[in-house]
Each structure stands twice: as structure tokens, then as C-alpha cells.
Simulated assay, not measured.
Amino acid sequence: MSIPEITQALLAAKKEKGLTFADLEKILGRDEVWIASVFYRQASASEEEAKLLVEALGLDTIYVRELSEYPVKGLGPIVPTDPLIYRFYEIMQVYGMPIKEVIHEKFGDGIMSAIDFTLNIEKEEDSKGDRVKVIMSGKFLPYKKW
């Protein structure tokens, strides 16, 4: 996966400033995962959010416009090769149908929204090795009958 030039610039500025996405969460008042999605151009910031982000990173104001434009979303039509991203793909390959079945049992025929959606990542300390806790919460959207 190639990383857009703007993403490279944002990540470099973040590193140079010694900031984390959690630090930027405090500045913008938005979740760290959402902010990271703006960096990777999977989400767009409002002009005000983009200004705060650009200011925090010490970047030129020309980035404000690009960060507030509508992004092109998705990784593309290929199977991801980055090991961490691939594991999520693998999880869906193995558990996708069971997840779908359980959601249908609990909610009926429909989908989980990726638009009315939140994603949080937590670190769980464990004596056998720290664990990654991913919490996805999306609005249930039933299929319409007509």
C-alpha cells in the first residue's frame, strides 16, 4: 500500500513534534482513531479541525484545504500485505460469517453501519503479553421491505 504524500508529511510532523494521536485527541476533541483516519485520508476534517491539526503539527496552512476535502476511502481491491492490516482481513475471512449470523440472530436481517460508527482501541495489560482490544460500535440498519 502506498502512503499518500500528505500522510507522509503529517506523520513526519507528528513525529518531529513528539506527539501521539492521543495528544492530538486532546487538542481536537475527536477520537485518536478518527484523527489517524484523517491523516490517512480516510476521513475529512472540518476547516476548524484542520486548522487546529495543522497548527498543532506546525505545518503550512495549505494543508487545511486538503484535509477538509472529501477523501477517497478504502485500501483498494487487493488483499492487504501489511501484517497487522492483513490480520483484520484474516479475522473477517475466519469469523465474518459467524459474526454476521450472530448479528442477524440478535437484530434481524440488516447490516452494521460504517457511517454511524465508532472504533476504539485499548491496551489491556496481561502477564502473558499485552492484548489489543478493538471495540467497534455501529448503528444497526435493517433491510427495507417494499
Results as ranks from 00 to 15, higher is better:
Ser46Lys: 08
Tyr63Ala: 07
Tyr63Cys: 06
Leu141Phe: 05
Lys145Arg: 14
Ile111Pro: 00
Leu10Cys: 07
Gly110Phe: 03
Gly58Tyr: 10
Gly96Ser: 08
Gly108Thr: 01
Phe39Ala: 02
Gly108Cys: 01
Phe107Trp: 07
Ala12Val: 06
Ala13Asp: 10
Glu69Tyr: 11
Gly110Lys: 05
Ser44Tyr: 06
Leu19Lys: 01
Pro142Met: 03
Ser127Asp: 11
Ile121Asp: 01
Leu11Met: 11
Thr61His: 10
Thr7Phe: 05
Thr20Trp: 06
Leu52Tyr: 07
Val94Asp: 10
Thr20Gln: 01
Leu24Thr: 02
Val64Lys: 03
Ile6Asn: 09
Glu16Ile: 05
Leu10Thr: 10
Lys26Glu: 06
Leu52Asp: 05
Leu59Phe: 05
Gly129Phe: 06
Ala50Cys: 04
Lys139Pro: 00
Pro142Trp: 07
Ser44Met: 12
Leu67Cys: 02
Glu48Leu: 07
Met112Lys: 06
Ser127Pro: 09
Ile35Thr: 06
Ile99Glu: 02
Glu55Gln: 14
Tyr95His: 15
Tyr95Thr: 08
Val54Thr: 14
Arg65Cys: 01
Glu105His: 05
Leu10Asp: 10
Ile62Gln: 13
Arg131Leu: 15
Ser37Pro: 00
Val64Ala: 08
Val38Tyr: 03
His104Ile: 07
Asp109Val: 11
Leu75Trp: 15
Ser2Asn: 14
Leu57Thr: 09
Thr81Trp: 13
Lys128Asp: 13
Met136Arg: 04
Arg30Gly: 00
Asp60Lys: 14
Gly110Glu: 04
Glu66Thr: 13
Pro80Ser: 13
Gln42Leu: 10
Lys139Tyr: 04
Gly74Ala: 13
Met136Val: 05
Pro4Leu: 13
Ile6Asp: 09
Ala22Met: 01
Pro83Met: 11
Phe107Ser: 02
Val102Gln: 10
Tyr63Thr: 04
Ile91Ser: 12
Lys26Ile: 00
Tyr40Lys: 09
Ala9Pro: 00
Ile6Gln: 08
Asp82Cys: 15
Ala114Glu: 14
Ala36Tyr: 09
Lys106Ala: 04
Ser68Asn: 09
Lys106Phe: 06
Ile85Phe: 12
Ile99His: 03
Ile115Thr: 15
Glu48Lys: 11
Asp60Phe: 08
Ile35Asn: 07
Val132Tyr: 03
Glu122Trp: 07
Arg41Pro: 00
Ser113Gly: 07
Asp82Gly: 14
Gln93Tyr: 11
Leu24Trp: 01
Leu84Arg: 14
Ile99Cys: 04
Lys123Phe: 05
Trp34Asn: 01
Val72Ala: 12
Glu16Trp: 04
Asp109Cys: 04
Ser2Pro: 11
Lys100Pro: 00
Leu10Ser: 08
Lys145Asp: 13
Val132Met: 08
Val54Tyr: 07
Val79Trp: 14
Ala9Trp: 01
Gly129Ala: 03
Glu48Phe: 05
Trp146Ala: 12
Ala13His: 09
Arg30Thr: 00
Phe21Glu: 04
Asp23Gln: 01
Val64His: 04
Ser127Trp: 03
Ser137Met: 09
Glu47Leu: 08
Pro71Tyr: 08
Ser113Lys: 12
Leu52Trp: 05
Lys123Gly: 02
Leu28Thr: 01
Leu75Ile: 15
Glu5Pro: 03
